Computed example of a mutant assay.
Amino acid sequence: MMKGMHAPLLGPHECPPVVGVCIAGAGRLCFVCEHAGQAIPERLDGLGLQETALNSHIAWDIGAYAVAEALSRRFDAPLAAQVYSRLVCDCNRLAEDPDCIPERSEHTTIPGNLALAPVARQARIDAIWTPFQDFVRQLLDARQAQGRLEALIAVHSFTPKYEDVVREMHCGLLFREDRRLADAVGAYLRQVPGLIVAENAPYSLFELQDYTIREHAERRGLPYLLVEIRQDLISTATGQQDWARRLGDAIEGALATLSEKHNPVSR
């Protein structure tokens, strides 16, 4: 049974919903990782799930935070990472979207999310979703005002097999109308022999109710890229370092290419 929800969702000793890296960095990019962690507020008693489920892909984007952090440090650019499980509250969905607090993920029912009372749902939004969105918004506003914001890059990871469908691509580059950065990064990644780089896969930003890109990039006319990396490739420290280097090289090369074409990413 859930513990009393009249008290604040997060206790004073629990980690804040947002982790910031290189927030004062001199770089002109900004990174976000909405599914960086698998933490569950103590008051939610693990959402009624077994530890195996909480450690699996349904709870977080395995390996994504390590890659995002390495990119942040390489480019000396800020990273905003959300460390609570997306099963508690998915910060890449509208707060009103049922999938923001899902009752089921793939083949797993989430007991702690079933028939959630409005007050309990709002407690999660207030404690996690709103602080994360405010942090990202204020960060981008400040850097844009300073002329130090070139693009927003979201780092995600995906399970190699979903609902019994095997996903063979190694990474996906997701975009909507503005595909400049995706095209330029893709051109560099495809130079790696045998690397399968997909567009708008395993998900499409045209189909998903993705929040970060629409709200924090498109609304302010900011170029962007959402990167998806297959989780088995970044489940170890070595894989994470390899992909951070590979993706970092591609981003660096892409920005240089766009600048040489007199079509800078910045607007």
Rank of each mutant, 00 (worst) to 15 (best):
residue 3 K to N: 13
residue 4 G to Y: 04
residue 7 A to S: 12
residue 8 P to G: 10
residue 17 P to M: 05
residue 18 V to Q: 05
residue 23 I to P: 01
residue 23 I to G: 01
residue 27 G to L: 04
residue 28 R to N: 10
residue 30 C to K: 04
residue 35 H to R: 07
residue 36 A to W: 09
residue 38 Q to A: 14
residue 39 A to P: 00
residue 41 P to H: 06
residue 43 R to I: 07
residue 44 L to N: 01
residue 45 D to R: 12
residue 46 G to Q: 04
residue 47 L to R: 04
residue 53 A to L: 03
residue 55 N to P: 00
residue 58 I to K: 04
residue 64 A to G: 09
residue 68 A to K: 12
residue 68 A to M: 11
residue 69 E to A: 13
residue 70 A to I: 02
residue 72 S to W: 11
residue 73 R to Y: 03
residue 73 R to P: 02
residue 76 D to S: 15
residue 78 P to W: 07
residue 78 P to Y: 07
residue 80 A to Y: 12
residue 80 A to D: 02
residue 81 A to K: 13
residue 89 C to H: 03
residue 89 C to W: 03
residue 91 C to Q: 02
residue 92 N to Y: 06
residue 92 N to L: 01
residue 93 R to P: 06
residue 95 A to N: 05
residue 96 E to W: 00
residue 97 D to F: 05
residue 99 D to L: 14
residue 101 I to A: 05
residue 105 S to L: 01
residue 106 E to I: 08
residue 106 E to G: 11
residue 107 H to P: 00
residue 108 T to W: 01
residue 112 G to W: 03
residue 122 Q to C: 01
residue 124 R to M: 11
residue 129 W to S: 07
residue 130 T to W: 04
residue 132 F to C: 14
residue 133 Q to T: 09
residue 141 D to M: 02
residue 144 Q to P: 00
residue 145 A to Y: 04
residue 145 A to V: 01
residue 146 Q to V: 02
residue 147 G to T: 06
residue 150 E to S: 14
residue 152 L to H: 05
residue 156 H to F: 09
residue 169 M to H: 12
residue 170 H to M: 03
residue 172 G to N: 05
residue 177 E to P: 00
residue 178 D to W: 10
residue 181 L to C: 10
residue 185 V to T: 03
residue 185 V to L: 03
residue 186 G to D: 05
residue 192 V to R: 13
residue 195 L to A: 10
residue 195 L to N: 11
residue 196 I to K: 13
residue 196 I to P: 00
residue 198 A to T: 03
residue 198 A to E: 11
residue 198 A to D: 13
residue 199 E to P: 00
residue 199 E to Q: 11
residue 202 P to G: 09
residue 206 F to N: 13
residue 213 I to H: 02
residue 223 P to G: 15
residue 223 P to C: 15
residue 223 P to L: 04
residue 227 V to P: 04
residue 236 T to V: 06
residue 236 T to P: 02
residue 242 D to I: 09
residue 244 A to H: 05
residue 246 R to L: 15
residue 248 G to F: 10
residue 248 G to V: 10
residue 251 I to W: 05
residue 251 I to D: 08
residue 251 I to A: 08
residue 254 A to Q: 06
residue 256 A to D: 12
residue 259 S to F: 00
residue 261 K to H: 08
residue 261 K to A: 15
residue 264 P to N: 12
residue 264 P to E: 08
residue 264 P to H: 11
residue 267 R to P: 15
